[in-house]
Amino acid sequence: MCTYLTQRIELEGAAKGATGWFTLSDGAVYVDHPFHACHEHTLNIDFTNPGEGPSARVAVELTEEAALALVDAIQKALASAPPGLASGAHARAAS
């Protein structure tokens, strides 16, 4: 099935795509058919910057288990660092 459901988020950071590093502005998260992974459905994440064109995109296609493990790993990594250390507001205040 095509879920057609897409969670969109604003992102701040950078990603390295096929043409090199670019500044991130947007993300999309959805469960649907993958383009490449050999599964019927995957949790897909697009890290993008539409202002730099459609090729400014890093795509990942994860199984449900892998996606949940990633969420857990992100939570643990953030919890192990002082609160606010990687905050965008923190970075802006320091500059």
């Binding site: 897409t6 947007d26 999309a28 993008t48 459609p54 090729s55 995109r57």
Partner: peptide, 20 residues
Amino acid sequence: REGAGVSPDDQAAAARAKGG
């Protein structure tokens, strides 16, 4: 319309982000 020379999967992701 998502751009010439853009790979089809990137075009599809861009179109999806705009609601298809």
